[in-house]
Write a protein that binds this DNA or RNA. Structure first.
Lengths: 199, 199
DNA sequence: ACCAACGTGGTACGTTCGTATCACAAAGAG
DNA sequence: CTCTTTGTGATACGAACGTACCACGTTGGT
């Protein structure tokens, strides 16, 4: 049976299983055995490809961030061939809202990781600063571009707007997740905010 | 030794211990024995006053929400004798930001509960809808009041503004918690947003 | 003064967790 | 054709967890 196997691919499959279980039962309740069962492999294999649970969690977080990046990129591409800054910004912000099962998973698991990273030092590492910072940078650039095109009233602080919008989007996402708000009303709030900034 | 004891008071003490441990090591890592040690009582007593861990968690969440309500109320009172709507709104929103150790605890543990409530049905019960909804209602009322006093430009949607600001505050709080943003810059973002709404 | 209920301690039980160990089959290298 | 490496299974181990059980001193009611 033991053909030579691609480690990276196998690790990805197992990490995907981890994310599925985490989405279903919560990240705190995920055990090595659950991941193994979900991936359809033995416990030993999970141990083999990720020596320790911590490394599995780390890889899973990385994977989650990567997948989300692709999701946002796809959304932006779907916004059209030459989308204006407003359309791109709206696509980015609404992509982060938990509207379908995939984005629900992302939001829930990512938030779980964020909570873990506060008390677990080794998990606090890269992605919780790098990833949102990148989104912030992109948003700032889009605002600057919109400003030069005269689409928004001049003199507004691109950085403050970008940070505020991202925080608002994240907060709305959480309230959707816990069932307090509908995705539609959250999108309306974001749209309202953008309406005030643009034109 | 067994004097007749006030159950409510004892339960409160134990719940406070739970919150302290949760703040230090994360809610997911809290065990009954940890709570007992932190409260300075035996494991048996924790079992005695809360028969099960689930009930302890539920009570702890209630306690956390109560304490936060008091905190916000104190902040609003501290804003002055006859604070304008703007000052009250700003007090409410900044009270939710994790600036000191107490509010850090609140934000972290509350977020942990929120994450748990998504997958744990019994925990999803009351406070995650009731509490934010109350804040939303208060904010809406303040906006209406400000509108009637002519402090803000007419025709703005009080509900959309309230929801957006609360979400922004929550999102900023999380980014402070994970170390991405400083409390000062988060407060500046909120202030900027309020500046645009008022007058 | 007795008796039932209350408050408290100690400890044991069954389960689950992450990790380690042992064994072995298949495949590439020489 | 051997031999070392790689992949995989089964299982064992020690710790920690939530909970249950048993014993005992104290208190208030009658």
């Amino acid at each position: 049976m033991p053909k030579r196997v691609d480690h990276t691919e196998r690790r990805t499959e197992i990490a995907e299983a981890l994310l599925r279980v985490a989405a279903r039962r919560g990240l705190h309740a995920v055990g090595m055995r659950d991941v193994a069962a979900e991936a359809g492999v033995s416990l030993r294999l999970v141990q083999y490809y990720f020596e320790t649970k911590e490394k599995l969690l780390l890889f899973g977080l990385q994977q989650l961030a990567d997948r989300f990046g692709e999701r946002v990129a796809a959304r932006v591409r779907a916004a059209g061939d030459h989308p204006g800054p407003r359309a791109m910004i709206e696509a980015m912000l609404t992509a982060a809202l938990p509207t379908d099962e995939d984005s629900r998973t992302f939001h829930l698991v990512y938030t779980s990781y964020a909570v873990l990273s506060v008390t677990d030092e080794v998990l606090a590492a890269q992605p919780f600063i790098a990833n949102p910072d990148a989104a912030e940078g992109t948003l700032v650039a889009l605002f600057r571009q919109a400003e030069e095109s005269g689409l928004i009233r001049p003199g507004l602080d691109a950085h403050l707007e970008a940070v505020g919008l991202l925080a608002m989007s994240a907060g709305l996402g959480t309230s959707i997740l816990v069932g307090q708000r509908s995705p539609e009303s959250a999108a309306a709030v974001l749209k309202h905010q953008l309406d005030r900034i643009f034109q």
